[in-house]
Design a protein around this nucleic acid. Sequence first.
DNA 1: ACAATATCCTGCGAGC
DNA 2: TGCTCGCAGGATATTG
Length: 274
Amino acid sequence: MPELPEVETVKRTLAEYLPGLKIKEVTVNQETVINIPDAETFKKELTGTTFTGIDRRGKYLIFSLSWGWKMVVHLRMTGRLVYGESSLPLAKHTHVIFHLSNGYELRFTDQRRFGRIWLVPEGELLRVSGLCTLGPEPLGDEFCREIFLEQLAKRKTRIKPLLLDQNFIAGIGNIYADEILFRSRIHPERTAESLSREEADRLFTEVRKTLEEGVAHRGTTFSDYVDGRGEKGSHQNYLNVYQQQGKKCPRCGAIIERIKVGSRSAYHCPGCQK
DNA sequence: ACAATATCCTGCGAGC
DNA sequence: TGCTCGCAGGATATTG
C-alpha cells in the first residue's frame, strides 16, 4: 500500500526522468480513474504539455506541467506509476498511458481501480478532494512537537484511527501506523487524550523516524507497491509487527497479535505495547 | 466530534 | 478441481 515513504520514492524516481519530457499522446483505457475533467478533455489538454516538476503532499503526487496545469495522482491501494520503454509488455489493469517525446511511456496501472487522477489549472488544487484539508506533513517543518502534543490531548478517539486520519496528520497508512505505535510502545486502542507526556513525545519522535526509515529503504513492498522504475522497496525486511502475527516480539518475546481497531487490522505486541 | 458501516474493486486463500 | 465466501485496505459518504 503506497503510504508516505512509498509515494516519496515514486516521486524521487520519476523526478529523475520526467522533467523536460513532453506528452505526445495520452491513452485512457479506464475512464473512471480520471476524476476531473472528463477523459476527452484530459487527453486533449495534456497533449503537447511538458513535465516541469513533481511534488508530494501526503500520499498525493502533484505533477507540474507547462501551460499552468497540475496533474494530481493518488495511488490508493494498488496503483502504480511506472516510467519505462514503450516496448515493454503491457501489464494487466493498465488504465492510462502517457506517451512521451523520447519514445518512453509513463503508465498508470491499478488492479483494484481505487486510484484517481485529477487535472486542474494551477491555483485550483483545492478542487482535488482531500488535498486542501490534509494535516501537517510529518517530515516537514510544519510538523511541530508542541502542537502535535496539544492536539493529541484534545482527542478522545483511539490513537490508531487518529494516525490514519489524513486530516490529523498526512501520509500514514496501516503499515506505518502499526510500526509507529510498536516503536512508541503504545497500544493501538489507547485514546489519544490518555497518552502521557512521555508517550506522546515518543510518538512524535517515532512518526518521523519510522517514516524516514521507510523512505531510506525505498518503501515497503508487500504485494503491489513498486517505485517509478518498477522496482520493489526493502522496508518489508525491517517490520516489527505488521503482518507478523504469531511471531515473537523482537523487543520482549511475547507473541504478536492481530486485532481489529476501527474495522482495520492492527498488529501489535500485547507484551510491551501498553 | 466521533463511531460504525457501506462503498468501491480484484485477487487470493480457506473451506467445502 | 472448482465453487463460494470473506478479507485486504484508502478515502468518502451516510447514519447514528
